[in-house]
């Protein structure tokens, strides 16, 4: 599969942007600047970047509680994201949503979600809509390994298969749902095996290899767009941090965390691009500096933005 140079470079940029955004959010949350709670995407960058690099601007995604990565990869401006995390009026959703609830229809982002599996039927519905409107759009549902035990997952996959919907189900298998190792509560080893039960293709890929993710997603998205129906892709990956910031890590062997951190997705990919002559070391450095500046600007923007007027709490509701 030939991957265009811009796409190869874009994936590096997206991963770096997610990485630096999340590192900053980690520190800002610890410093008490960001209210509520946050679930970081650190370590899983290759999944969002590899999948979203196959999507058009008007394709849809649904995301999860661990959504920052998906939203950045789908093209969001980190300025408005950061402002939303700060609960500011200038955030994507006027401070009403926060970290777990960022949506922006202009980029096809149908919402991060606080309900595990909540986005899966919604992506399926967006795919139904795209099909009936003959718009040529594709929908992607991102969700975790834990979410694949919800009824919403199983019902949605059957529906999508039955109606040949243009949807791709992307399961990020990071081994845990909160503090429970998911193989303790799931009998099949691979989530992708579940695809067979619904009559759709299922594939397990290395979720820390952005090229492997891209290739699997490219095939599934093209298939969906061509009217050949849905696919389930399982990306094996790992979250570096605990479930949410501030949770003590009592349940993961430190060796396991270290082993996965050694398998981090960005540095080897950057090295690969340089070795292939796609980027020079200096260009790679410039990309990284550029995203760092963007993230710094986002923090300044968020800090300097006003809080919403309290009465705006009553707006945006019809009933």
């Amino acid at each position: 599969m030939e991957i265009p140079r811009e796409t190869l470079v874009l994936m590096l940029e997206l991963m770096l942007k997610i990485r630096h955004f999340e590192l900053r959010v980690k520190d800002l949350f610890a410093a008490g600047e960001i209210p509520g709670f946050v679930h970081l995407y650190l370590g899983q960058e290759a999944v969002a970047a590899g999948v979203c690099a196959t999507l058009n601007k008007d394709d849809y995604i649904t995301s999860t509680h661990r959504g920052h990565g998906h939203i950045i990869a789908k093209g969001a401006d980190v300025k408005y994201m950061m402002a939303e995390l700060y609960g500011k009026a200038t955030g994507y959703n006027k401070g009403k949503g926060g970290s777990q609830h960022i949506a922006w229809p202009g980029l096809g982002i149908l919402g991060a979600n606080g309900i595990v599996s909540g986005g899966i039927p919604i992506a399926t519905g967006a795919a139904m809509s795209a099909k009936l409107r003959k718009s040529g759009q594709v929908a992607v549902a991102f969700f975790g390994d834990g979410a694949s035990n919800e009824g919403a997952f199983h019902e949605s996959l059957n529906l999508a298969a039955v109606f040949d919907l243009p949807v791709v189900y992307v399961c990020e298998n990071n081994l845990y749902g909160v503090g429970t190792r998911q193989t303790r509560v799931r009998k099949v080893e691979n989530v992708a095996d579940r695809a067979a039960a619904y009559g759709m293709p299922g594939q397990t890929v290395d979720g820390n290899d952005v090229l492997a993710v891209y290739r699997a997603a490219r095939e599934a998205v093209d298939r969906a767009r061509a009217g050949a129906g849905p696919t389930l892709i399982e990306c094996q990956t790992y979250r570096w941090r605990t479930h949410f910031e501030g949770e003590p890590d009592t349940y993961r062997p430190p060796e396991e965390v270290e082993a996965w951190m050694r398998r981090e997705p960005i540095a080897p990919y950057r090295q690969y691009l340089i070795e292939q002559g796609i980027l020079s070391t200096r260009e790679a450095e410039e990309i990284e500096q550029h995203v760092i500046v963007q993230v710094n600007d986002a923090v300044e923007f968020a800090r300097n933005s006003p809080f919403p007027a309290p009465e705006t709490a009553l707006e945006d509701l019809w009933a």
Partner: peptide, 16 residues
């Protein structure tokens, strides 16, 4: 509570 979903931003939440 005011009859709206609970908003995130503390200024909004405290108002609701």
């Amino acid at each position: 509570a005011k009859d709206v979903p609970i908003p995130f931003s503390p200024v909004l939440e405290n108002y609701v």
